[in-house]
Nucleic acid binder design. Sequence first.
DNA 1: GCGAAAAAAGAACGACCGTCCTATAAACGG
DNA 2: CCGTTTATAGGACGGTCGTTCTTTTTTCGC
Lengths: 199, 199
Amino acid sequence: MRKGELTHQAILETAVRLASRVGLHGLSIGGLAEELGLSKSGLFAHFKSKAELQVQVLEAATVVFTERVVRPALGRPRGEPRVRALFDGWLTWDRDTLLEGGCIFVAAAAELDDAPGPARDTLVQGQRDWLDCLAQAARIAVAEGHFRQALDVEQFAHDQYGVMLGFHHAKRLMRDPQAEARARRAFDALLTAARIPTA
Amino acid sequence: MRKGELTHQAILETAVRLASRVGLHGLSIGGLAEELGLSKSGLFAHFKSKAELQVQVLEAATVVFTERVVRPALGRPRGEPRVRALFDGWLTWDRDTLLEGGCIFVAAAAELDDAPGPARDTLVQGQRDWLDCLAQAARIAVAEGHFRQALDVEQFAHDQYGVMLGFHHAKRLMRDPQAEARARRAFDALLTAARIPTA
DNA sequence: GCGAAAAAAGAACGACCGTCCTATAAACGG
DNA sequence: CCGTTTATAGGACGGTCGTTCTTTTTTCGC
């Protein structure tokens, strides 16, 4: 009862890393087993299906993301500092977590946007939570007087996400060495617009 | 020499549509053949490999995109109107082209960002051209006095791309009915920031 | 340490994949 | 209309996929 849970966890850890490179679709039972030195059937026994594996990979990645990005940011002062911390953590969490293939959620979003099923549902829920988290941080910044009163915090979260996606595109596909600088400049512009009274 | 070229074109047309749903990876020779009522080998003969098929699919999609988005925009007045036209066309070109799976380039970007090869090279070149096109349109808007002199036009193009990616994410993955309104609002903010003298 | 229970391995399955080879059918220049 | 070129079909290949069943090994409470 303990050994099983242990390998189960080890599998997921490797699976998240592998999925970031090859995608949830490209993540194969056999390939994953080989990477871990396990037999295909031995690994499969931990999940009743590949779909279940995909769901658990997304859940495991979400746990890591929360630990690596959200929790540290919650330790920062309420308002703009926390908003910035969320963005900063977001920018580098895949690097810090050794996800060579970049943010697994961005890859999964493109893969699953037209593939109904439990994996998609899991991803969407996680993204919804994350967007809510971003919006809530902005809401606090409004309450603290850092951002203007009339700011549409959901729009702010949405725009922040767009900046992040642009960063991912520039960095991972275009291999643009300026990607991070561009993303920070774009986010700064967002912050500026959020601060100044109704433009 | 004519019949062949005709079906070749028909194959690519269907392939682009199919790839938008299932991705370049999920696009299978057999599945594509069935959709067209052709034999697998008959279709395969048109391309020497699957990699070549993928490249040609991307090229075909680029032609459509240029025809549907870039060319109409070039008919609009130089400056901000043209910049807006590029954005507007971009927002809806996948819908207009009956790409049920959404913009094929966004899907391909996530699929290929870690897969070196001719398909990736083709995509990257196309995206580079497109970003150059956006930057050039912004440059003209500066020259026309619509945008401020000091505007970083490459940054503007990059930010514009981020808005578009945010739109795609909100619409296709999150099924957010407000996706388009959000995207327009974000782009308007970009335009405002581009107009006003150094904030 | 023994015995039950859990974990892992081994082998096989049907299905689909890209690719190749060969034969047939259609297209087309003369 | 014929003969050649071209386009398509048919079938088979080795490989990988997810999944299942059966067997062996390991774990772990008693």
